[in-house]
C-alpha cells in the first residue's frame, strides 16, 4: 500500500539557524497524527513545508508518491514551477492559527472562491458544495455573514470548511485553537473530531493534550528540530520514554 505522506530527512534553515534537522514522518490514509512540542521546536515549520508555504533545503516530501515542491533535473535540485506547486497544494488543505478568512467575502464566498477560481466549478456547483460543508461545521445559517461578524470559533470553522471543500487528501491543522478564547475551543475541536470519525487523514499541530490523546492514533513529539519520540498517545502520555517528553508533558495542561 502506498503511503499517503512520506517525509524523508527534511532539512530547513532560516539563514544560519537550522530549524528542521532531518525529520522523517509517514502517514497512511485515514491516519490522524498530532504533532506536539514546545514553541520553536519546528512543528509548525514542518507542517508549512508540506504545502510549500515554506521552502526547504534538504530532504523530500511525497504525497501519494508524488514529490512535493522540488524536482531533480540532471542531478540538480530545483523548485518546481509556480503553477505546478499551486496544483500540488490542492493535495492538502490547511487551517491556520489566525483563521485567515478573506475579510471582504462572506462565509459562503470564502468557501466558493477556490472552487470557482481553482477548480473552475460553476457558481451553482460551488455553492452546493460550500453549503454542504458549512452545514457540516454548523454554520449554514451564517453563510451570508462576513468574517468580522463571526466569533473566532465560527471563523475557524468556516476556515476549515473552506479548506475541506477543496477535497484534499490530507488536512493540515496549524494550532487552530491557539488564537481562540477558551470557551470557543471546543466547538472547533468537535468539528475536527467529526472529520476524524469520517476517516479524514489529518496532521494536526496542537497544544491541546487532551484532544491529542482522544483523537490521534499517533502522536509525534518534536524537540529542537527533530522528532523526539513518536507512538500511540495512550502509551506515550503515560510512560514517556525520553526525559524531554516527560518534562514537556509535566508543563502542559490537560484540560
Amino acid at each position: 500500500m502506498t503511503k499517503l505522506l512520506e517525509i524523508r530527512d527534511l532539512h530547513k534553515r532560516y539563514g544560519a539557524t537550522e530549524v528542521l534537522k532531518g525529520v522523517d514522518c509517514d502517514m497512511a490514509k485515514g491516519d490522524v497524527v498530532c504533532v506536539i512540542g514546545s514553541s520553536g521546536s519546528g512543528k509548525t515549520t514542518m507542517l508549512r513545508c508540506i504545502n510549500m508555504l515554506e521552502e526547504f533545503q534538504g530532504g523530500t516530501i511525497r504525497i501519494n508518491d508524488e514529490e512535493i515542491g522540488y524536482e531533480t533535473v540532471g542531478g540538480m535540485r530545483r523548485r518546481k514551477r509556480e503553477r505546478e506547486i499551486a496544483r500540488q497544494r490542492l493535495l492538502t488543505g490547511m487551517a491556520f492559527q489566525q483563521f485567515n478568512l478573506f475579510p471582504h467575502l462572506t462565509a459562503l464566498d470564502n468557501v466558493t472562491l477556490g472552487l470557482i477560481k481553482v477548480k473552475k466549478l460553476s457558481r451553482a456547483e460551488a455553492r452546493t458544495i460550500a453549503e454542504r460543508w458549512l452545514e457540516r461545521v454548523g454554520l449554514l445559517a451564517r453563510k451570508d455573514h462576513y468574517p468580522g461578524q463571526l466569533s473566532g470559533g465560527q471563523q475557524q470553522r468556516v476556515a476549515i470548511a473552506r479548506a475541506i471543500a477543496m477535497n484534499p487528501l490530507l488536512m493540515l491543522f496549524d494550532e487552530v485553537t491557539s488564537a481562540l478564547d477558551p470557551e470557543l475551543v471546543n466547538e472547533v475541536l468537535q468539528v475536527i473530531k467529526d472529520l476524524a470519525r469520517d476517516g479524514m487523514s489529518m496532521l494536526i499541530v496542537t497544544h491541546e493534550m487532551r484532544f491529542a490523546y482522544e483523537v490521534a492514533n499517533r502522536v509525534i513529539f518534536m524537540n529542537q528540530g527533530r522528532i523526539g519520540e513518536e507512538g500511540d498517545p495512550r502509551e506515550m502520555f503515560v510512560t514517556p520514554k525520553t526525559e524531554r517528553l516527560a518534562e514537556f508533558l509535566k508543563t502542559s495542561t490537560f484540560r
Partner: peptide
C-alpha cells in the same frame, strides 16, 4: 493586508496573480 491572507490563498491553490486580483486588491 495581512500576509496570512496570501498564504490562505496559496493553500487553496490560487496562483499569485489570482491572489492579487481576488484577495489583495479588494482588501
Amino acid at each position: 493586508v495581512p500576509p496570512g491572507l496570501r498564504e490562505a490563498g496559496l493553500a487553496i491553490g490560487l496562483t499569485e496573480m489570482q491572489i492579487r486580483t481576488s484577495i489583495t486588491l479588494p482588501v
